[in-house]
Design a binder for these strands. Structure first.
Lengths: 224, 224, 224, 224
DNA sequence: GATGAATGAGTATTCATTCAT
DNA sequence: TATGAATGAATACTCATTCAT
């Protein structure tokens, strides 16, 4: 191994350490709340290296965001898609996603921070909604409709966002729910119980006939 | 009106102006991102008054949070609850909530900021989950089960959080969805389209039999 | 009593209350450390009145200083000067001064604050050194010399300052000495013990022959 | 010299410059009166470094206080203690201390600020009373008593504080005395004149028999 | 490439003082 | 005269970023 290679490797290692610390800190405190000093200290490296590698606090944040999303997509892609009937696969997809979210709190928090950011970066939106595994739901639903087990769905993108929001919602309010319910959202058994509810809504909704346009037109106003 | 009352009224007006500006700024940027200077300037008052009335930036944030939540609860309480069959009332409740969220983006953003905060302030969680109108869903579901139109639900709290998350999710990712879909989430027609999906999942889920424990026990692992 | 008189009297009362609070606060914290807000609150009046009566924080400080000094001088003047032999009167003067200082901590503190101020206000200096009762020491010493019980003193002003410093020193470092010695400098018995030492030095010094100029000329250098 | 050493040295130099400016400013204006901005400007460094090195204004004050006291103790320890008879050594000790105080006005002012602080930091009290060279007075007095040239002294700590207060008193009221007397307390000749008085009191007092308990018991009350 | 020191612009907070009633 | 509200200029402190070695 040449001198140059060694140095390069060391540089990569430094970069990776910084990124790791950055992911932790930004997930925890957000772009504004995180401190470059704290990240430098936690990384075992120093502030100057952060600027050498990432240019600015924003640059580091972007890299951290990208890193978390890529790791999440990788993890998603690694899951098996057994060839089962649409209903069963839908069930597994939802349940798998719930466990995934429970195990990747930093991904969840980054999505939340991005939701609050005023960015219109659609790559993040894609990761959030589609890339994060639920895009398969679209295919599944189409397949289910074709098979006759699901009723037609108007706009499948809406369905995905709805299911995604339902799942993310539990983890987005994680601290508060844990305090309110006295449970531990790291516990797989707890996640299973929540996934039951999600499954029921998703499968029930897909099986059901869509709400007619007529019914909601009359209904929308009187309640407000 | 006595002089004391006049002065008092002026003080309250100042307080209200500050609070108003604070709600805007904190909703936009969060606790860390907001600037006391900016709030003071926008309030038409001055920094000193912020500290006279609210003690600190945190104190002002808390007051703003409280103010937004109270306004939301008031708006919620003001909605009618006509005596209709459970299904129809559920539909209206969900639809009404969706429109409410569309019209109260600051409320939505405050809930998101709180979700990211490491506080375990359950009063906010309560406001979020239950107080924000969906507690009626619990009663409705119970009533529907009694009437035989809904199937029994295991833990109703889970259901409420799931539905709440589904609704909030659209607005939490508002900017990204608007960019991704090229739609305007301020448009009632767009909201109605989304509400259709939510309704379908909620009503479908309530009508459906719960997922059996047996089915998900086998299913949970193979997908990951 | 006319309306005008009543108002005047009320104004005087307000002024006195403010001054009282100011003396407390300035004695405690000094000019820089004291807070106009705190004084206003403690006075039972309000800030605006402070400015109406005293013009500025400095103005109030000056008035407080003056008030404390005058009160001290009044108390001093009220002490009896029995016609006793010089030695006995000196002893009583010193002892009386020590007790006076123990009972007037605010006076002591104001003198200390003034010592640190860069003012050259000789009226305060006079109060400090001469007015505060020890000027009688000059007469006593002269009388004692005339009577032959005291040896001549070079510059009596120096003597007064020396004795004054010795007495004030205990109370100037009051908090520290109390902590260090574990005693209470409010206790008359403790003061008496300290006064014994002062008396011994003063009477011993007045009885003794002055140090010769020759002796200290040689002595001054080698020790440094 | 390694690079680390160089950098370290530079950091220490910055620290020393800040401390130097801080000693000046705090001696002059006290903790409340001094301005961090002014100290930063005077130090040739900047505000940020003050906080990097000392954490807070209070931290800097403490460091400045400590620095002044240590410098004083060092200077004290550096003085010679020739083996002379107790009387002569006492004389030199007192005179040396007076000249020291004249030459170290910042030390004198810091002691005064500490006297006014409501701290019970006995380390400062110790430095003030004992460490500042006068502890030798205790040994001298004991030796003198043993030799029969001094009369027994009740509590030697009281004596030391009395003498210390007497010496400090001149410099504590420096500005006022200079204005009142039209003299310059930087002038060694002036100091010598004052030291004559102190010497006379100290030596006279040590030679004299202590005041009897009987005499002051009657005497204490009538004078007040 | 790596590191500790340095910095200027900014950020929350405080204070003496004045205004309006 | 009396009072609570209001204000602008400071004031202590922080932060992202850059420099020197």
């Amino acid at each position: 191994m040449t001198e140059l290679t060694k140095r390069k490797r060391s540089a990569e290692r430094t970069r990776a350490q910084i990124l790791d610390a950055a992911v932790d800190h930004f997930a925890e405190a957000g772009l504004d709340g995180a401190r470059v000093d704290a990240i430098a200290a936690a990384s075992g490296s120093n502030k100057r290296m952060i600027y050498a590698h990432f240019g600015s606090k924003e640059g580091l944040y972007d890299a951290a965001l990208r890193s978390v999303i890529e790791a999440a997509l990788d993890a998603m892609r690694a899951t098996a898609h057994p060839d089962l009937p649409p209903e069963e696969r839908t069930r597994r997809l939802v349940r798998g996603y719930m466990h995934f979210l429970a195990e990747h709190p930093r991904f969840v928090r980054f999505l939340a921070w991005q939701g609050l950011a005023n960015t219109q970066d659609t790559s993040v939106a894609t990761a959030d909604l589609v890339g994060a595994g639920l895009d398969r739901l679209v295919q599944l639903a189409e397949r289910g409709v074709a098979d006759g087990v699901f009723q037609p769905v108007g706009d499948l993108r809406h369905l995905v966002v709805a299911v995604n929001g339902m799942c993310l919602g539990f983890f987005h309010r994680r601290a508060q729910l844990e305090a309110l319910w006295g449970v531990d959202l790291s516990d797989p058994a707890t996640i299973d119980a929540l996934a039951d509810v999600v499954e029921r809504l998703v499968l029930g909704g897909l099986r059901a006939a869509p709400v007619t346009a007529a019914s909601h037109r009359d209904a929308s106003e009187p309640t407000r």
